[in-house]
Structures are given as C-alpha cells and as structure tokens.
C-alpha cells in the first residue's frame, strides 16, 4: 500500500536494556488496541519482552536505561556500529534519569548500603548521548506509547519527526485543568517539554519534568515565579533534578 505516493518501510528494530526499570520497554508492548499493528509494522529482531531470539541484523536500535558500568559502554559501542538509527528511549537513556541521583552520593558508601559485601563496579550514571551519538531522543518516565507509535510511524513512512515546541502547559490547558499553582502547588509544566498529554498536572500533582526541558525553556523566569510563590529553593531544585533532564542548566 502507498500513502501520498510513499511506500512504507519495514524497519528492523531491536530493543536493548541498560540501567533502568524496563518500564519504557514494557510501554512498547502496552496499549492493547494497537499493539499487534504496532509490532506488525516493523520487524522485531531483538526484544526480550516479546521473544528470546537474538540477532544482530537490525537497523533501528532503541536503548533503554542509563549507562552506569564499563561493560555497558562496550555493548553500546557495538550497537552504535550496527544501528542506522539509534534512539534513546525514556528519561534514563535521554538524561540519566532518576539513576543520576546517585551521582551526588559517595559510591563506596552507597555500594555498601545497597549490596553489602557484594560490592558492584559502578560509574557515575550518564545519558546515552554522553557516550555515543544519538539520532533521536524520546523522553518520558515512562515514555508515552502514543508518541512512540507516532515516531515509529515516521520511521515506517520515512518522514522526519518533529517534537513539539510547546511546554506541558499547552496540553494541560487543553484539558481544562485548574493550574496547580492556583492550588498552591509547584509544577514544572512551563519549562518542560510537552507531548506527554500532561497526565501529572491533570491528575493534580504538578509536573516533575520527566521529559526534560522544553525548547528554549525560560528557567530564569520560572525560578522567579516559584520564588514569588514562596517555594523554597531546595524544593525547586529537588524537583528540577529529580529526572536529571535539567542537568547542567541550573
């Protein structure tokens, strides 16, 4: 079938997990109504959530998780060599995610607390793009399945994907939400990349910035409005660092 004169491709995809919770990978097989068509529009070469076959004949690689060990770096380099398109899937892969919180701690002590005597080698958590070139970043903790579907459709039809230029507020407002600031709560919506359909402010808990910074975020003004509403710098910074999307901007 052709659409607007274009013939669809059938990209060979593989999904690899690094340091993460596998929540984003699970999202790929989520959404019952469309999952069969979703998986049917691509050739799944390597994806342990649905099959145990392993092959290296893939074109598109989805990377889930942050990079926290030496052996992960080698594996990542090998995947990069094979992949035509390499996609960071989820906030851990895009920014380091919650894993990055550990970077502020003493690793020896942390190791002892978590693993006791069975000490594990660990590096500071990093985003995939800090190690190899990334072609596309799909942020979110977890990723939003409809957005992943659209991105895969763009790969299938071979048209470039444009991430939204608007912040979370846009989709929040379009759902008639009472702004959580009005209710006395903090929200990172004005500076966070939209596209998630704003589930957090719509649910009443404010945005935690899991999708990282919006295009051209106005952090200076954001800090100003948060100060004016008497949120402590500690609370604001904790919020901004939680998913590490704003790393290096604060």
């Amino acid at each position: 079938m052709k659409y607007l004169g274009i013939k669809p491709k059938r990209p060979k995809i593989a999904v690899f997990d690094f340091t993460g919770c596998e929540g984003c990978e699970l999202q790929l097989v989520n959404k019952e109504e469309t999952v069969i068509d979703f998986l049917g529009s691509v050739d799944v070469i390597n994806f342990r959530e649905i099959s145990s076959t392993i092959s290296n004949d893939f074109e598109v690689a989805f990377i889930e998780g942050a990079i926290t060990r030496d052996d992960e770096i080698n594996r990542l380099n090998e995947i990069r060599e094979q992949a035509k398109v390499l996609i960071a899937l989820g906030s851990c892969a895009c920014f380091g995610g919650v894993n990055r919180l550990k970077n502020a701690y003493d690793f020896k002590k942390a190791n002892q607390e978590v693993y006791g005597k069975q000490h594990k080698e660990t590096l500071p958590a990093r985003a995939v793009k800090e190690i190899i070139a990334v072609d596309l970043q799909i942020p979110g903790c977890p990723v939003d399945k409809p957005e992943v579907e659209r991105i895969v459709q763009h790969l299938v039809w071979d048209v470039p994907y444009q991430f939204p230029a608007y912040p979370v507020c846009f989709e929040c407002k379009q759902q008639y939400t009472t702004c959580v600031f009005e209710l006395g709560q903090l929200c990172l919506g004005p500076v966070t990349q939209g596209g998630c359909r704003a589930p957090c402010p719509v649910g009443g808990s404010g945005c935690w910035g899991c999708r990282g910074p919006a295009a051209d975020p106005h952090l200076k003004e954001f800090l100003q409005i948060a100060d004016e509403r008497e949120f402590s710098r500690k609370e604001i910074n904790e919020r901004l660092s939680f998913y590490s999307g704003f790393e290096g901007m604060l």
Partner: peptide
C-alpha cells in the same frame, strides 16, 4: 517579553484567540 515563558496559556483561555494548526494522523494499521 523578558518574563514570558512562551507557555501559550494566554491564548488557550482567551475567548477570542482562534489560531490553530492541522496535523495528519494515521492509525497504526494504516
């Protein structure tokens, strides 16, 4: 403008703003 966060909320609540975009969407099974 130095204060504007480009959040778009002003236009969302305005009773007269009518600007829009159009997007083509296809279902997953084409």
């Amino acid at each position: 403008a130095d204060k504007c966060m480009s959040c778009g909320s002003c236009a969302m609540v305005c009773p007269t703003c009518y600007c829009y975009g159009v997007e083509e969407r296809i279902t997953m099974n084409n």
